[in-house]
Nucleic acid binder design. Structure first.
Lengths: 355, 355
DNA sequence: TGGGGGGCTGCACACGTGTGCAAAGGAGGG
DNA sequence: CCCTCCTTTGCACACGTGTGCAGCCCCCCA
């Protein structure tokens, strides 16, 4: 399959033209002090003039270093990933590493093929920016024997390191905001129940309620799936609960978007009747109706940090490292004080037990 | 910098264990008919058992083929790109090519560095999935001397090919829909004026108005920028026009989102008072308020087609090719028949000239 | 003037894989 | 039985770059 790549200038061609050996050219271009400065300069000029471009494959072979980092993502369709990838790529470029893309879309066959491609390319390290890494994926990656940095997906293993947003602290921010506005009945729409981030946000939610002396009603915690449908269903169930919350903290912005939709469908105004807080600060959070107050993960920083950590690991540090970056609250327009409590008496104990 | 990649099994190791020469191993693993079938099978078994993984760099060097395709995108933050990349990646994986990521974020220095990285990796071809390729970027890419497939960015050049959605036909769909609903005063909020896609959508807009016998008011065409702000400003100007449109066709969904926001701010209900059509069908189009009727580009198909085209070019076809894929209309809830024309007389000629 | 040392250069080999060519061995036909 | 041809294998070189080591030349010092 395929044609050959066009034959390009090699250091031997330059050597011939310069009347030196290819070794000298190699050294001159690499800036070795072993070459006479004038000669080196002459060679560099000549190389530039001849349009020389080093051959990465040949260099890899000679040096046993590829300068390639694998970037594993389940799917680019996750708007959350863009900024992370930007951060990763920027640091990679600065430090002379190349990125190999490996997406899997959660298909086991493709995951396997992708890992094989990474192995054949002899990646020196791997960054996994993906909410859900397949359970089988990770072992294969570990078998590569190179350091792995997981983003927002902390696990334990000899080659495993991680950079994650501090979801619990982020949840604290969201809840502190709602509590400060005067809310006391606050719901939480979960993401994928098994996700670590979900458990942490839930923990943060519970902690802040407890700290405020509020006893959370079990009905306030409803299951979503991290996607808009989940938010829709979740909010519907919340609205049906006996002690209807005046505010909802959502696992992520996608969930919040669904929740906003359901609120509208139920005739509720946001934020007058219901306050909503999201998580992630995706691009569209600023354009929902109303614009969404949300907890921003430092995505770009996480990307930079992950690649920076990988660089350090490639330099030789081998101890497993797990880094946490703080979130911050982005206040927009989806939160307000709770609606005036109708002076209607709350249900008495007896009434509650009635059908 | 960096440690060496762990030493892995080579065909020489296998050869030693199998008691044959490395040539035989190479041939066996590549499935050459020159090897005794039993021997070949034995070698393949041994290779698998020893955990052999071919070294892509060495193979590249020997065959002068890298199997690498450069994927150039200005920024991943464009939600539009995700599906395209998915299509590209899928075909690439199926056909044994690897993807090399190069983003530039419109920074000239980074563009240069990215192109140099592509050159050093000896990419066999390049796919450019990016609304705005820097003017300087493209010449550098062309200097690589490998086929280039542009997505949604048709230009002419010896190595340039393209796959694009048929924007004009898409505009026809949108306009046909609005006209069929009974609208006669229809505005268009542009994208970046220089963008080819914008010119095509504008052309499609004009053609359909003309076909319907409608003489477009110059005030109906207002300038946006492809982002929500542009849509906001654009709609504000449209609402201020003397013959206020009852429907707006927007350059893209981001613009439409801004337009929806401005409509709300102006107290207009969508779709009762104003119909809005977007373009692109990004993920969030389904979650705007109301859900956005829009023209979908076949993004996934475009990605697949682009990579497929590149494969054919790599096989040897050299004629510049420009492919067009049709769009389709996705009807949601942002369009309705125009509001009942208030029986109020329209302004007379004389009145119009008054201050 | 001889010896030592430093600066610079080239030789030769290595990296891992692929492949043209020669050669060995066996089978089959005359 | 010999010749030919086919199958199978290994040798040797190539790809482009990097690098240890030897060697050359020149300068400096004794």
């Amino acid at each position: 399959m395929g044609r050959r790549v066009p034959r390009r200038i090699s250091i031997k061609d330059i050597a011939r033209r310069a009347g030196v050996s290819h070794s000298t050219v190699s050294r001159a271009l690499r800036g070795s002090p072993l070459v006479n400065p004038q000669t080196a300069e002459r060679i560099r000029r000549l190389a530039a003039r001849m349009g020389y471009v080093p051959n990465a494959a040949a260099r890899s072979l000679a040096t046993a270093r590829t300068g390639i980092v694998g970037l594993v993502i389940t799917t680019l369709a996750d708007p959350f990933l863009a900024e992370i990838v930007r951060g990763v790529e920027e640091v990679a470029l600065e430090s002379g590493y190349r990125l190999f893309l490996a997406t899997s879309n959660a298909d086991p066959d493709r995951e396997l093929a992708a890992v094989r491609a990474l192995a054949e390319s002899r990646v020196e390290g791997v960054i996994v920016a993906s909410s859900r890494v397949g359970e089988l994926y990770l072992p294969h990656l570990e078998a590569l024997g190179v350091p792995i940095v997981l983003i927002n997906n902390q696990r334990e293993g000899p080659f495993l390191h991680s950079v994650a947003a501090d979801s619990r602290q982020g949840a604290h921010l969201a809840m502190a905001h709602l509590l400060a506005l005067g809310h006391t009945r606050i719901g939480y729409i979960t993401g994928p129940p098994a996700a670590r981030s979900n458990r942490e946000r839930l923990a943060g939610y519970r902690e802040m309620l407890a700290a405020a002396g509020i006893d959370p009603d079990p009905e306030w915690i409803v299951e979503g799936n991290g996607r808009p449908e989940g938010g829709e269903w979740g909010l519907q169930r919340l609205l049906a609960s006996s002690r209807r919350p005046t505010a909802v903290f959502c696992y992520n912005d996608m969930t919040a978007i669904g929740a906003l939709k359901a609120a509208r469908a139920a005739g509720l105004r946001v934020p007058e009747d219901l306050s909503v807080v999201g998580f992630d600060d995706i691009l569209f959070a600023a354009y929902t109706e109303p614009p969404l107050t949300t907890v921003a993960q430092p995505k770009y920083e996480m990307g930079r940090t992950a690649m920076g950590l990988l660089l350090r690991l490639l330099e030789g540090e081998q101890a497993p490292v797990h880094l946490r970056l703080p979130c911050r609250l982005v206040e927009r327009a989806s939160c307000a004080p709770p609606p005036q409590e109708r002076p209607v008496r709350s249900l008495s104990f007896d009434e509650r037990r009635l059908p």
